[in-house]
Design a protein around this nucleic acid. Sequence first.
DNA 1: CCCATATAGTCGGGGAACCGACAGTTCTGA
DNA 2: TCAGAACTGTCGGTTCCCCGACTATATGGG
Lengths: 239, 239
Amino acid sequence: MALTPTDQLHFAWLARCFGKTDYLPLSPTDLAALSHAGSFIDKYQGTHLFREGEPAVHAYVIEKGEVELYRTINGIRRVVARAGEGNVLGDIAMFRSEPYISSARAIGPVSAFRFDRDKLMPVLIQHPVITLRWLVAGLGQLEATQRRVLRLMSRTVKEQVAELLIDEADDMGEVHLSQNTIATLLGASRQTVNEALSELRRDEAVETGYRHIRVKDATKLGMIASPQGTVRRVKAVSN
Amino acid sequence: MALTPTDQLHFAWLARCFGKTDYLPLSPTDLAALSHAGSFIDKYQGTHLFREGEPAVHAYVIEKGEVELYRTINGIRRVVARAGEGNVLGDIAMFRSEPYISSARAIGPVSAFRFDRDKLMPVLIQHPVITLRWLVAGLGQLEATQRRVLRLMSRTVKEQVAELLIDEADDMGEVHLSQNTIATLLGASRQTVNEALSELRRDEAVETGYRHIRVKDATKLGMIASPQGTVRRVKAVSN
DNA sequence: CCCATATAGTCGGGGAACCGACAGTTCTGA
DNA sequence: TCAGAACTGTCGGTTCCCCGACTATATGGG
């Protein structure tokens, strides 16, 4: 199979994504094999990569752009996570042959590599190194989710906002999220997030604007995010 | 390598654990390969399988008994999860070559199969089917964790307690956990859990005793756990 | 350029849950 | 058997946060 120069670039990028843990490098053979397992696609802003409940025949690796993962429970739409460059989506449902557990919507223009389930499985059987890498990547995501659970527990909204700002800030210390979006990401109300931001502004840690927050003092923000003085009593737990 | 009758039983059990998704059955060759990747061990009550921060050279599959996973943050000991028969522990850290992110303590007598990192990796490269199965198992855990995050958000302690009781109840509808343990599992205070249990008792859904709760009406409990009338307004989220 | 829409900012009421404290009960080991 | 430890049950004060309501400002399409 002949690869166009554009495809070469694509696969080089794909190797970077899976190579983040620099554990077992992907060989050129592996990359060529993956080209048979799916194809590159583009999505316009607002369109869905997949929807909750659909049979999961595809998994995606985001190449460019951001995707919003959300679930609808009792008519309540809840943003579960945001996925950016290098994130893998839908692999859980695809591997488990279950319906997608969440919907994925493109926040802006998105380029992605779409794996085809029926084509991918044989490739993975033939290329255990790729499978192992995928395993490591999936477990990394699991760890991140567990960390998120712990972050959510026993922390005020102000602390959570501070931490989220640190995570989402770009090189310039700028965050381009509406307060409403932040609130949904944290599972808090817009008003409380607004109040938290007001305090952070009073603390001279950030500046706020229309759909725009600038981190003035990342160190101070870090102090607020994980307060050290909050050492509560430890209750021993037996069964 | 000669397998003792006991080992045969062990491996049959191990196959069941990995085979829960009945996707790609493990072959006898696979089982034999796994026997080289580690060994069966027994742990007494209260002893640790591993501790937070230690280099992760082992992963465990629980064969019998229950294990408590906890982390210590700012001197606060937090139970992250409980693992029972068939659960895989420590694989995240082991595969990612990072220190264990939590401690694992045997709640009672525990039997487990302990994988040895250096022995396991070559086996996985040679047996992609096992790797794929492990991948599926890991992703299943990821899904469960994500579900847990969603369960935690926007639910009262009473609802959470009801759901936990359904999950943890045995065949007889009995739960053998102290209120303190339940509180820690849910990230709530003991008093609030006690209050929730009092209400559940008033609702005639459960009976309570010393380290002992009996589910009287599982249906009613389910209704309380996931209330249908709680349809709140949906705010659209754009970025 | 104007207006519908989206976002930001603020206030007050009310509810859920945390926390400390304390009394009563059950268990456990010496 | 007996004392200390662990567990349950309850109360009141306090904090945090959700929610509704309202105003002001920014954006973007026609």
